Simulated scan of single mutants.
Amino acid sequence: MSATPRIDLASVTRLTELADYIVPFTIRVMCDLAVADHLVDGPLPVDVLARRVGAHPGALTRGLRALAGRGIFTEVEPEVFGLTPLAEPLRSDHPFSVRECFPLMPPDIYSWARLTHSLRTGETAFGHVHGGAHYYDHFAKHPYECVRFEKSAESVNPFVLRTVLPVLDLAAARTLVDVGAGHGTFVAGLLARHPRLRATLVDLPHVVAEAPAVLERAGVADRCETRGGSFFDPLPAGADVYLLKTIIHDWPDDKAARILRNVRAAARPDSRVVIIESVSRFGNHDDTGKVMDVKALALFGGRTRTEDEFRGLLGEAGFQLLRVTPTSSMSVLEAVPAPVTDGHVGAATGGGRPAAGVPAAPTPAGRTA
């Protein structure tokens, strides 16, 4: 006979909060409407706020009240709303703004509604819903959604930069290739920190086309060039450092290894590879990487990997993993090419000395299979 369930109303309440999607969807709509931006100078009556954001006053009141009950926004007087500390990061001008982090995109939402398919089969819900299409191939054909996705992915870069810069040593590097660079916000931060560094950004043409404006605003455009193409094709050769930030987790092992082999073909014997990713660990601790692993399953077909799995993947591509440094956001993995002896890749004996040199210009890389 099974044990009698323990009466624990706090657990029921907590599960209800965790399983609810009303609040997350409402937050995302408030981001789309830029509600927080209009409350920067203080609380506003909802009819004024509704006119400014293009919303129905009564409906906006209901949404804001639901969020105010969770500490996001505050109703200071009847139908007068203002910001709270939890709402501040929803402002576009916040140093760590997450406003673009939460887009409501129908292709994603339809996929999450079929997550059961992924858990039963191990296949992507996205492919199941969208006729077998890979996530990035789909968005390449839908420019508006692609821009929203890229802005979402890049919105976390200021926070990630803040956490990884203290452990990412680029002082001796002069050239860097950012593989799958998006719009370039991350590498712009690296260039601002390292004034002698030059970079090449590599991503699909429709993605990297947005980078020049980002680099210009950051004041680093004179030290950065962009290349459009797929990272399954040859990469710019001869750089001191090859950076892959949140790229490998999007792909299954065969394609992840293919990307790394392309990096290995472009790298010098003394080049360094820097991978910024979540690293999976056993246990019950709260870990963003574990949550992102489910996203990779449902949407991309990749996964979050353990340190040993990264070591094996890198070894297959001809690299030796030197170190893994955890931070409060992601981990920084550093690897170097394993030496080649008699035409075979051997066990690496140590790191290489970064050397100067400008990357050559073979076909660049991006995010398509």
Rank of each mutant, 00 (worst) to 15 (best):
A199L: 06
I7K: 08
G283E: 07
E334S: 11
R114I: 01
F73Q: 05
G180K: 06
A298M: 04
R264D: 00
V291C: 04
E100R: 13
Y110H: 10
S280G: 09
P234K: 05
L90G: 06
F126D: 02
V214W: 09
E277V: 10
L299G: 00
Y136K: 08
D32Q: 13
G42C: 05
T163K: 12
G63A: 14
M105R: 12
A3K: 02
P236D: 10
E334I: 09
D308A: 15
M1E: 03
V156C: 05
V80M: 03
P24T: 13
P339A: 08
P269T: 13
A199T: 11
D178T: 09
E123C: 11
H194W: 12
F149K: 10
L201G: 08
V29N: 00
A192P: 00
L244S: 09
G131M: 12
E334W: 04
R198Y: 11
F231D: 01
A347P: 02
P354A: 05
V291D: 08
V164W: 03
A66Y: 02
A298T: 11
V294W: 07
W251C: 03
A237L: 10
P166A: 12
F25T: 12
P269I: 11
Y242F: 14
E17R: 13
M105H: 04
D222Y: 00
T246E: 12
L90M: 11
R120H: 12
L9G: 05
D93T: 15
E17D: 04
A50C: 06
T13G: 07
D254H: 14
F231L: 14
V76L: 08
G312V: 00
L313Q: 00
H249I: 10
L60G: 02
H128E: 13
H206C: 13
P205Q: 14
E210M: 12
A267K: 06
D293R: 06
I72V: 15
R258K: 14
V332N: 02
A68G: 14
I259V: 15
L39E: 04
V345C: 05
V208N: 09
M30C: 15
G71Y: 08
E316S: 10
A171V: 15
W251V: 06
V274L: 00
I7R: 12
A171N: 08
D250S: 09
H134I: 00
R272N: 03
A153R: 10
L204K: 03
F232T: 15
G219H: 14
L243P: 05
D293F: 02
R14E: 13
D37W: 02
R162Q: 11
D240N: 08
N262K: 13
A209G: 14
R323V: 08
P5S: 01
A361Y: 13
P326R: 01
L243D: 07
P43G: 03
L201P: 08
M330E: 06
T325V: 15
E277W: 07
Y144A: 14
T116C: 02
T288Y: 09
A355L: 13
A153Q: 08
P103Q: 07
G54C: 12
K245V: 03
L49E: 02
L86S: 03
T163M: 14
P359A: 08
A50S: 15
L39R: 01
D47M: 02
L170S: 08
D240A: 14
L190R: 07
L244V: 13
G312K: 04
V35T: 15
P212E: 01
V46Q: 01
G352T: 03
A356F: 04
A298D: 01
